[in-house]
Nucleic acid binder design. Structure first.
Lengths: 326, 326
DNA sequence: CTGTTAGCGCCTTCAC
DNA sequence: GTGAAGGCGCTAACAG
């Protein structure tokens, strides 16, 4: 059905080797006249190289697998796009799979990607994921974690400098006059969120401020429910740092539903800095993760054998929800 | 490096044929004892079938390509997840590429996916895209458009019944007492947004209501800017249907920035019904597209040769922004 | 400079 | 019930 190298060779009166040399500009030289004939034949027939055959022969597919926690979460979605751009620069295709926070599904996806002979595996896992990169290692396939590394192991991790970011957020809220600054963490104590929580705790302690640790699932729904409940109980703090944008958006939704004004009644900051955070009502003050830099670094590590390097810094972006601009 | 069929055959003292029979449960029977030995050998060696080799032999990869307009847009992101789930049910992997509204990039992605020998192409294009599915057709690869079909051509399209949805939205706003109901459309007149605009126009005309057509790009930023400007000029309508959630969220952000209360000063509805729309402040009243049904239908069309059928209906979900629940 | 050919790993027809 | 062998489309020795 499809046009093959042999078809082009026949049509141009040459051999498959010559056609291959022309299509790949090497590894052997071809006479200009012959080259023209081959190119013409290829164009006429609409020849398109079969990457599957090439992959079998070359032992490399030009495809990388991305195991993602959840593309519905704007943070992970933005990260995925950054990874895609980084791969694009290397002419590499991406297979994506959403694991939905399920360790078994992470493993299943990784297995499938490995069976598909991906050249590398990028794993973006949330708290409590499986150490799926270990599977890649066992198969001799390069792998990287971005954002969070579930297991111990020697698989490299690329994440941002959460410590400095959270410290800056706490300082910023303090600058607005707040002395009781809550932190909204996730249900578990692991990964970047744990780092952010620790950083908050250190900053609050050092500043002689009053701590209040809150917890909920990483979803808008859970954060909205918690917020409504706290407001009803009169237990809502007046300043809060949310571990994730997803939670912060839930807090905003809950506050809106319960009639608590932001930033008037609650000064809120968050730690992801997704694109969406600029268009909430009110706009979210955040510490913005350098997603493009993280993705570029991860892909360089994966495909170019670049050395592991220090975490890139997050940037403070004050907007309306903390009390700025208004 | 990697373990192959031949390795397992050697280890189990059989032939590659038998190992293949065992791994695929056919097409020939294998004696139970032999089967056990093969399975044991495969497990010991950690054998994982090479899908690339299988694909070359079988002429089918078990991979579908998804050309997406923009995964940063929650509507497209949700659609992509639905497509992934529909493919998952058929044990099919997905390659994704974001075209970012650029026709040339759509074409490039389609070319690459075709070269990777995908079994099918799902194209989710925004207004003004290229007719990339035509490339697939030329290559003899099945393809479907979801949401929008750029060109003429006979490539099937799966979309929702926009007409009924918009009519319901207009009626709903009218029920809230509004007689001047604006519509926020996109910059072009094509595809589903054009359908929605037409449906709005018919509904407004039939109801003897006052029309006002507004336009802006499909981004939060553009919609927010437009909203701020209209408010400043005193030209903001009191009721509006936005063509997309993305634009509606921008309107919400603009209204919040300019101090216009929603729904008090503006009753707003939107036509996508993304998951995000339930957690804006205030929550967005929408007509919800049946994304799972659309995706399932598209994939059935693509891989199972299912017949084209009528568009599934969108559902009205009243929330706070139109004036309900309050 | 160009042609012939041997596999990459798998599946399956054909012989035993 | 099992084994040997050809070939999917491509690349890169190896000959000419």
């Amino acid at each position: 059905m499809a046009v093959t190298l042999a078809d082009v060779a026949r049509r141009s009166g040459t051999s498959t080797a010559v056609v291959s040399y022309v299509m790949n500009n090497g590894p052997r030289p071809v006479a200009p006249a012959t080259r023209e004939r081959v190119l013409a034949a290829a164009a006429e027939l609409g020849y398109r190289p079969n990457r599957i055959a090439r992959a079998l022969r070359a032992g490399t597919t030009g495809v990388v697998g991305l195991v993602l926690a959840d593309a519905s979460n704007p943070y992970f979605a933005a990260l995925a796009r950054s990874v895609e751009r980084a791969l694009e620069r290397r002419d590499t295709l991406m297979m994506t799979g959403n694991a939905g926070y399920l360790p078994d599904r992470q493993r299943l996806l990784a297995e499938r990607f490995l069976a598909a002979q991906v050249d590398g595996l990028v794993v973006v896992s949330a708290d409590g994921g499986a150490d799926v990169a270990a599977l890649a290692v066992a198969a001799g396939v390069p792998s990287v974690y971005v954002h969070h590394r579930p297991g111990p192991g020697r698989v490299p991790l690329v994440s941002a400098d959460n410590d400095a970011a959270v410290r800056a957020a706490v300082e910023h809220l303090r600058g607005h006059g707040h002395r009781r600054i809550a932190f909204l963490a996730g249900p578990h104590d692991a990964g970047p969120v744990a780092e952010r929580r620790d950083a908050w705790h250190r900053a609050v302690s050092a500043g002689d401020l009053e701590p209040l640790l809150l917890r909920c699932e990483y979803s808008r729904e859970a954060a909205a429910r918690l917020t409504v409940r706290l407001i009803a109980e009169g237990a809502m703090p007046h300043a809060m740092v949310a571990a994730t944008d997803e939670q912060a958006m839930g807090v905003l939704a809950g506050a809106s539903a319960a009639g608590l004004p932001v930033p008037g009644g609650l000064a809120l900051m968050s730690c992801d800095g997704t694109p969406d955070s600029a268009y909430t009502a009110p706009t979210l003050s955040v510490t913005e993760q350098p997603l493009d830099a993280m993705a570029e670094r991860a892909v360089a590590l994966l495909l170019d054998g670049a050395p592991e390097s220090a975490a890139p810094a997050a940037r403070l972006v004050p907007r309306r929800s903390c009390g700025c601009e208004g």
